[in-house]
Nucleic acid binder design. Structure first.
Lengths: 223, 223
DNA sequence: ATGAGATTATCGATCGCTAAGTCAGTAGTA
DNA sequence: TACTACTGACTTAGCGATCGATAATCTCAT
């Protein structure tokens, strides 16, 4: 009972004292909205992102929350339901980044490609734990995986449209659009693997690098 | 105690007819050398690549090999030692791909970049199971991880040298060499996530796409 | 008095791992 | 050739710990 697949987002103020939004011309501001996770999911995310789903026991989660194990099962049907809820939140947040960026990006394939790459890069850097969860999708049951994959693929579809558009308009010269899309998404999600918030460069600087690399990858000639 | 952390000499003489060993180092030819894994590691690889280290029990491995659990412990000190042996094999094979390709590539940064990307791409496509193991490195103990990371980083260092070289010679125009290197490696390793040997395109065709994308990414102007 | 939300206590299954025994093959000795 | 000793490669049996999950009960605020 009481399982909920919806993403409950309580719109409290995102108390993140982060660096100011990048004043990039014509690109909409992307505010990292705080992922509103209940204490159980927060603890689950912490452990799963660090050690993986199968290496995380419900007892670890309960201990971190400060409750006993059955309290977890009052809110979630089983352990898998917690992973599902986390992946739902994760993909929802990623898509909200992308939608918001594209909505502010106009119709030019160049600025749309930049916007999408910036969105995924900032999401990957600002929400590393959630973004890393993507690698835990193989622990989903078949139907849960199918649902997740559908949402996830929507981002790839958006990117594919943009690249095809750019090729059709003669802006991008890549002869391998499909693999270009895969490459761009792989490399941008790869940011989760090395980016550290206390590292030498900010997420915004990193995102700008990746925007340029992505434009170069599709062989945009006027860089 | 039969402990032995180094290259395990375990029954390898499984009479399996595999591809002929042809250590030919012709320019542009990368012979995928068969990964020589004993039956235990073969079974372990199969399960771990599919479901992950922590989701794989020693009983599953034993069952697939056709022996009992203690037989596994006669050859490997513990479960972790099997993962270590697999990751050792994996990184050794990857490096052998890269070394062989670079040895045949001359000194031109363009052809060296192509060679390295081709090597990693073909490794990722031809040995998906081994390549996917990279994501299991977080299940290593601290010192095992350090050893693995050192080997793994050597490939990144090689690529970084090549890119810096190309920039110094005015061949590559990228203003973000470090992130370019990360992006190229991420995207190329990402091939393991979608490539299927029975898919519409061969590993070699895919590798050629990625060579071009990588050259474009470092902003090589004469594509 | 009721129900949301937590607790105590415990279930059977499975986990990684090991002590001790079996047994075929090989080397050494006469 | 025949007997002995030894070793490598396994098996049977089972250890203690932990796993995900549940039944029954308790505690309050409404």
């Amino acid at each position: 009972m009481t399982n909920d697949t919806r993403t409950d987002s309580v719109p409290t103020a995102a108390g993140e004292a982060d660096t100011a939004q990048a004043p990039v011309a014509m690109a909409g501001t992307l505010e990292p909205e705080a992922a509103q996770l209940d204490p159980i999911l927060t603890a689950a995310l912490h452990h799963i992102a660090l050690h993986g789903y199968h290496a995380t026991s419900v007892r670890m989660i309960a201990r971190e929350v400060g409750v006993t194990v059955p309290a977890l099962y009052y809110h979630y049907e089983n352990k898998q339901a917690m992973l599902v809820a986390l992946l739902d939140s994760s993909v929802a947040l990623a898509i909200s980044y992308v939608e918001r960026a594209l909505a502010a990006a106009g119709t030019d394939p160049v600025s749309r490609l930049q916007a999408l790459v910036k969105a995924v890069a900032l999401y990957s850097a600002h929400h590393r734990d959630l973004a890393i969860l993507d690698s835990e999708r193989r622990s989903l049951t078949e139907e849960n995986l199918a649902r997740y994959a559908a949402h996830r693929d929507s981002i790839e579809s958006r990117l594919h449209e943009i690249v095809e558009d750019g090729v059709a308009q003669g802006l991008f010269a890549t002869p391998a659009a499909r693999n270009c899309v895969r490459a761009i998404l792989s490399m941008t999600q790869g940011i989760t693997g090395w980016f550290r918030p206390d590292g030498p460069r900010t997420a915004e600087e990193t995102a700008r690098d990746y925007e340029r690399i992505a434009l170069a990858a599709v062989e945009y000639r006027d860089l």
